[in-house]
Simulated assay, not measured.
Amino acid sequence: MKKHTEHLFSESIVYSLATAKITEYDNLLVESVLLLQLSGEMTFETSGDRIIARPGEVYLVRKHQFVKTTKTPKNNEYYNALMFILKDEILREYALEKQLDSVAKYQGKKNILLPENAYLKGFFNSLLPHVQEPKTLENPLSILKVKEAIELLLLGKPELKNFLFDFSEPHKIDLEKFMLANFRFNVPIAKFAKLTGRSLAGFKRDFLKTFGMSPRQWLQYKRLTAAHYELEKKNKKPTSIYLELGFESLSHFSYAFKKQFGYSPTEVTNLNKVQNLFYISAEISPKG
């Protein structure tokens, strides 16, 4: 798949533009993101949500989660979105400037569809002319724009204070529960370690105690087992599942699958076809 194109106005503002082809990628969000969908659709999946952002919708996406993103052009238009990366350093600076009180640890929804807000809409519209001239939003103007976005978010929904200004790091969480919920994401082992609140060495050590094998071995085994289930029980095609299950290419998936089970993914799908034909013929054949 052709990679998407992103114009980086600054370290905090990104204008994302793709070709007419669908693009997919996995990522670990280390900063929260404010997203305006301009054209096309963005589907983003986390361990707890599957959301489709449509033109005109504004989402606030919480940091410290894996995201599987699919960007899809629609109606013969390029995919198009504008994103604000809400960096902790800018949020901390804003909190100091406004002398905000300490906040409680955020426990709410991680992905929020914001209600229509005339002020926020006007703010985003004011940025669109900069799409043609990216250099006009270089620092320090970009930082001012991010702070303006924060101001408008709090004006429309004051309860977002905890969402924005909770700077706590992931604590050491249940490793087994976390991995079972997130094994499909194709990200480096170090990023799994970070979100479980462990160093890479500590993660590998705890992983071996929990699962009896290394992270890479377990991820391969778990993804292939899930793939076999999808092919056999849900009649899915190899081409429709290999990316969902964290494999970078169909050839890599097919090779690993055959090495694990002794037969290829297509052999499973072909067997399903034969069995389905058998059942159909048995149902329509004359009785007695």
Rank of each mutant, 00 (worst) to 15 (best):
P115R: 15
D206M: 08
L180N: 14
N111K: 12
D101P: 04
E116H: 15
I150Q: 00
E169N: 07
F185T: 03
F207P: 06
E159R: 06
A95W: 01
L180H: 14
K209F: 09
F167W: 11
K145P: 02
G202S: 11
Q99L: 06
E169D: 07
K204A: 09
E133S: 14
L155F: 09
K157T: 09
K110H: 12
R205M: 09
A104V: 10
A181H: 06
K105S: 14
I112Y: 02
K204T: 08
H130T: 13
N125H: 15
A149C: 05
L208R: 15
Q217E: 14
L224H: 08
I189Y: 09
L219I: 11
G197K: 02
L141E: 05
M213A: 12
I90P: 00
K161P: 03
L224N: 05
E97P: 00
T210L: 11
S142I: 00
S168T: 14
F124V: 10
V131L: 13
A181G: 03
L141F: 05
L128V: 13
G108A: 12
H130P: 03
E159K: 03
P215K: 10
Y221F: 11
P134W: 08
G156T: 12
L91M: 10
Y106H: 11
G202E: 10
K109S: 14
R216M: 14
K109Q: 13
V187E: 08
V131G: 10
T210D: 05
V146D: 00
E89K: 08
L137C: 05
Q107S: 12
S126M: 05
L91I: 01
L91Y: 00
L200N: 09
N162I: 01
F163M: 08
K105Y: 14
F183Y: 15
K87S: 00
F165L: 03
L141N: 04
L155M: 09
F203A: 06
L155G: 02
D88L: 02
L96Q: 01
H130R: 07
M179N: 02
L113D: 09
E89H: 12
K98E: 00
F183I: 03
E159L: 07
W218I: 10
K191W: 07
G202R: 08
F178H: 07
P129E: 08
K147S: 00
Q220I: 12
G202D: 08
T136K: 11
Q217L: 09
L154T: 00
L137S: 02
K204W: 02
R205S: 13
A201Q: 10
T196D: 06
A104D: 09
K105L: 13
M179C: 05
K87A: 00
A118E: 15
M179S: 05
